[in-house]
Every structure is written in C-alpha cells, then in structure tokens.
Design a protein around this nucleic acid. Structure first.
Lengths: 158, 158
DNA sequence: GAGCTATACTTGAGTCGTCAACTAATATAG
DNA sequence: CTATATTAGTTGACGACTCAAGTATAGCTC
C-alpha cells in the first residue's frame, strides 16, 4: 500500500531535478541580468542568436524555433527589444511576409555589456559545483533531451 | 576575433541544454496533463506533495518552498485547486496565522488518476533516451544544482 | 490565372506567476 | 505589558507567455 507510482525511479528524480534546478537557476540568473542590464534571459538569448546569425538578422520564425517560443511570443519579446532600440525590423526582398529581426549596433553593444556578467553568473553557478568532466557529461546528457537540437551557430539556411 | 564569450564552454552548453530541455519537456508533459486531466504540472506537484505529507496537509509556506514558488504564487495555485475541490483549507490550533492546504479525498482520487498517465509520460520521455545508469547520473548531477534539495519522499517532517 | 493550402506574422483574451504593499497574528525586548 | 520585528497569508498591478483567430503574402494545381 505504499505510494507505488509516487516517486523514486531515476527518471522521476531526473525530471524533478530538472524542474527545480531550472526554476532556481532561472530565477537567480534572470534577476541578476534584469537588475544589472534590464534584460531578461530571453531578451539576452535573442540578442545572442542575432549576433551569431549571418547579417545579424533572423526571421522571426527562426528565432521562435531557436528559443522554443511561439510566433506570438516572439512578436511580444521583440516589441520590447525594438522599443529599446536593440533590434530593428528588416524587410525581405523575396518574400513580403517575412520581417527580419535585425540586431542594431546598440543591441550588439548591449549584448557585449551584458555577456560578461551573465556568462560569469552562469559559469559560477555551474563551475563552482562541477568539474569540467562532469559539465561535459551533464551537457551531453541534456543534449539528448527534446528541444536541445544544437542548432549550431552555422550559417547555412535550410 | 571569433565570438569569445559567445558560447562553447561546457557550463554554457549545460545551461542552454537545461533551458531548452526544460522548455520542451515542460510544454509536452504539461499539455498532456492538462488535456488528460485538467491539471498543470504545478497543480500535480501540489497534490503529490500533499499526498506524501503527514495528515495530507502542508502549510502554504512549506508548499511554496517545495515547489520553488512565491507565497502569492501558492495562493493563486491553491485558489484553483480549492475551487475544484481537490484541496481544502485547514486551521492551525497553535498559530492562527497559518492556513493548511489539506488534500481532500477527491484530490487524492484525482492525483491517483493523473499519476499513471503523467508518470508514464515522464518515464517515456526519459527512459526512451537514457539507460538506467545514465538516468542516475543525470539525476545525481541535477541534484547538485540549487533548488534540488531532495526534500526526500519520506514522511518525516523536519 | 482562379482557387486552395500553407506560411509569416500580429492581435485580443486569458493564464500563470511575480513583486510590492498590506493585514493579521506571533515572538522578542525593554 | 507595550513597542517592534518577524512570519503567514492575501491582494492589485503587471509581465511574459499561450492559444485561437485574423490578415497578408506565397506557392501549388488544374
């Protein structure tokens, strides 16, 4: 009569570990980023993806796919970044439906400013707890879960 | 001149892996749970924690701590569960400030009904991709991150 | 080249959670 | 015992997303 399905299995432990650690880390790192630079983690990720993209621009759809957000989520995210001047809209010559999100110089500047402390925060969270090997193991395992398609910063369109 | 701070380190890979996998898994598992049982992941977790607690009740504060939510987040979460009849309010004799969240029979019923398919979903996500050993490794690594205080499935209060 | 389907994006409404401010009860100190 | 601090909880305003619906452009098929 003990709680049969009620926990214990490694898969469940991994799952709750993922839930909790995400919550804790996200909260901490996001607070850091917001208070130091006025950016959320997703803001930061947008700037980062744009910075790595050819021409520093990306279709909204592609951004959505990379960040695992919906199209409308991206619209809303970019609203803020556009208002702040970090991202601008760009037209596509061959397809009038697409609007590019283009990283402005100001946006790149902002990203550079934020990267130091943010990456520092991330590294501290992880590197203070794990060895290099462990981090590679962890990253490798996580990479096999859905959503982590290592889209590669590479430039080839589909 | 390559992007210096712009990725690559295992700690950063682990971090983005955590972000993405959480997003993807959460979305999938939550959708499943909502459509099959009308519960969110957090609803489910509340019911689960209550079911394991002595007397099937927990102070709101303790629930907040376990779920890594704020006090007001808990108030709102419980609002819904109380309206649904899965959780009731209980008074504390020795301290009039505290309100317990008490799992009702209906709530336990609901949890039982949901547990099967939810745990099944979680296991499928994880066990289809990893061996038992890998899952233990993953769980063990995640447990060392903040927020994963393995409050123990056991019943002993502090 | 007319009609259908698919794709890119936006918008309104709603959900879930946060923070800051507030009430109420308890604990602690002088 | 009174004054102050601390703890439990709720509430209003708001932020970040989602979903469903809508608009506009593109592409396919006959």
């Amino acid at each position: 009569m003990r709680s049969q399905v009620f926990e214990e299995r490694p898969s469940l432990l991994a799952w709750v570990g993922l839930l909790r650690s995400h919550s804790a880390l996200t909260r901490a790192l996001n607070a850091e980023l917001v208070s130091a630079h006025g950016l959320t983690i997703n803001d930061y990720e947008v700037l980062l993806h744009l910075a790595r993209a050819p021409e520093r621009q990306l279709r909204r759809v592609d951004l959505a796919e990379r960040l695992l957000l919906t199209a409308s989520g991206i619209t809303r995210l970019l609203d803020g970044l556009e208002r702040a001047g970090y991202v601008a809209k760009g037209q596509c010559k061959s397809d009038a439906r697409v609007t590019y999100a283009v990283l402005t110089d100001e946006g790149l500047e902002k990203l550079r400013a934020a990267a130091d402390s943010h990456v520092g925060g991330v590294r501290q969270q992880f590197e203070s707890r794990f060895s290099e090997d462990e981090l590679e193991t962890l990253a490798g395992l996580l990479a096999r879960l859905p959503g982590v398609d290592t889209d590669g910063a590479s430039c080839s369109p589909d």
